[in-house]
Design a binder for these strands. Structure first.
Lengths: 219, 219
DNA sequence: TCTAAAATTTAGACTTGCCTAAATTTTTTG
DNA sequence: CAAAAAATTTAGGCAAGTCTAAATTTTAGA
């Protein structure tokens, strides 16, 4: 079996690999896991011994297919528990990350599959992230960032790239929650901020920082 | 905060203290936690430093009121998760112990209280054990062991003292599950085995070993 | 009650995962 | 393209929780 800590490294390597290209660096991992580079190096050697990552000294790291399988399993658990916490226990989407971070390490495949069934096989977590399948596939979505949408387009808010409580609470306050339909009225050339109309009639400014962390779906 | 391991020791000390009188011994703890006496001694010193137990070398151990408060909190979590696993996810009462053993360490009071509400404030877990209150009180039941019931009495099966999958599966097979009404027909003087009638008409023998692990309620 | 057995504690060591400081390799830049 | 900077790894150590073996204390039996 794999330790709590090993599972977190695998998940973090997966996460970083999807946002960068090439191999994941020691420093990036140290920052994400809030440890020091030397500690990361220790763990990388251990994961490489277990054939969960491809590791070449000084060159960075990449998951093996077994490592990716495990990472997706952890992510599946995390996202299913988040659905449980929000849909069944009534938590807000800004409150569930830390709890899911613990729940994702409960070791029982049967538990996960029963939870999935209990939740009626959700496809997305409360932040709009797709839930990997039992078979270990990550469903692809065609979402774009709001910051890449052209003026005049109407789109639907489908997810977020930033999961911090601060960001999510800001969205709560402005009404930019999942599923809401918006039309992009203007793009400010100076600071790239957006004038957005939320259906049916409220209008608000959205900073570029917010817009590039909001995922939206076509017209 | 307290470690996973510390929480397990507190829970185990509480458990042993309720079945024995006097102080809990090092050896008993070593056996229950599947470790060695020397390891237990180390942990007892640590728990004593944190004022969670009263500890006198060579004399055994007793929870402080703070230690007991924590132990009851862990037990409350454990039993609520067991209710969730059985009532909501459909697990059998013989399958849930190990999962609850992990879930009980998830650190969020808010989570526990929301779970309690979601489950509609259950009073007992799937084995008939009472669920401690948020305030930290262990509800008392007036249950007797089936082995202490007199011939001729009719009683209702309310709980078990032994939680091993083997024992619970044996009860499943014989039909002696929670809530079932039984009448004690005869007590065998030689081996203390019982002839029991399960309402309305099936009859079976129950060994003394089974009878002293079954909790029943009055007439 | 005195001694042997049982229970417990101490001593010293191991593993995991982390750290700091120093050494090494890679990358960047003048 | 060589020197400086940045990134990474190595070396040596620490804390938690465990272990075995040896020492100590308590208990039980003759």
């Amino acid at each position: 079996m794999h330790s709590f800590t090993e599972e977190n490294y695998l998940k973090t390597i997966y996460y970083l690999a999807t946002r960068q290209q090439g191999e994941v660096t020691t420093n990036a991992l140290a920052e994400m896991t809030a440890t020091k580079a030397a500690s990361v190096t220790d763990m990388l050697r251990k994961l490489a011994d277990k054939q969960l990552i491809h590791y070449r000294k000084y060159q960075g790291v990449r998951l093996t297919s077994e490592g990716e399988r495990l990472a997706l399993k952890i992510i599946r658990r995390h996202r299913l528990w988040e659905v449980f916490l929000v849909d069944k226990l009534g938590f807000g989407w800004d409150e569930v990350h830390d709890m899911a971070e613990e729940l994702e390490h409960i070791r029982s495949d049967e538990l996960v599959e029963r939870l999935d069934k209990f939740l009626e096989h959700p496809q997305f977590d409360p932040h709009g992230d797709p839930i990997p399948t039992t078979a270990g596939a990550m469903p692809q979505t065609g979402y774009r960032k709001l910051s890449e949408v052209a003026a005049g387009e109407s789109v639907c808010v489908m997810g977020v790239l930033e999961h911090s409580p601060e960001f999510l609470q800001h969205l709560n306050r402005t009404g930019l929650t999942l599923g809401c339909s918006i039309t992009l009225r203007e793009i400010n050339a100076f600071d790239k901020s957006l004038l957005v109309q939320i259906q049916p009639e409220s209008t608000l400014f959205v900073s570029h920082d917010v817009a590039r962390n909001l995922l939206v779906e076509g017209e």
